[in-house]
């Protein structure tokens, strides 16, 4: 039996910002987690190559965009089963001031984009040394 792994691929409704390129646009499923000094954002972007990812961070918003070229000629393919569509992935997040935007880094592995969002140094937990009274 399949476990709860199902992720329905969501298509973006025409939002305020419309893409220049035609074709469907999908919202990647994401996990956002925190550990020690950073936030981790993991997004499912199957079919996206590392050179086709665009990550932008400005004025408190982070946008991830992965371009996906069609893998089949949809018009002339004799589909027996068609359960998902193929197209770009895009999603925008609000990130607080607590992120050090200059140090954002990302990697793409097996169709999963991982963005590392380091916390700004002033927000890092600091250990306060207690001076002993001499």
């Amino acid at each position: 039996m399949a476990t709860e792994t199902n992720i329905q691929k969501r298509e973006t409704p025409l939002a305020q910002t419309e893409p220049v390129r035609g074709g469907p646009l999908y919202i990647p499923a994401v996990d956002i987690a925190e550990r020690g000094h950073e936030l981790l954002l993991m997004a499912d972007m199957p079919g996206v190559r590392a050179d086709a990812v665009d990550i932008q961070c400005e004025r408190g918003t982070l946008t991830i965009h992965g371009k996906v070229e069609p893998r089949q000629d949809v018009e002339h393919t004799n589909y027996l089963l068609r359960e998902y569509g193929v197209g770009d992935f895009r999603r925008t997040f609000q990130i607080g001031e607590g992120i050090d935007a200059a140090k954002i880094a990302a990697e793409l592995r097996e169709g999963v984009l991982t963005v590392h969002l380091p916390k700004a140094p002033e927000l890092m937990p600091r250990k306060i040394a207690v001076k002993a009274n001499v």
């Binding site: 709860e4 925190e34 550990r35 936030l39």
Partner: peptide, 10 residues
């Protein structure tokens, strides 16, 4: 140890 804020991926 990770603290999840959002978990959509299974």
């Amino acid at each position: 140890k990770l603290t999840y804020h959002r978990q959509e991926r299974g």
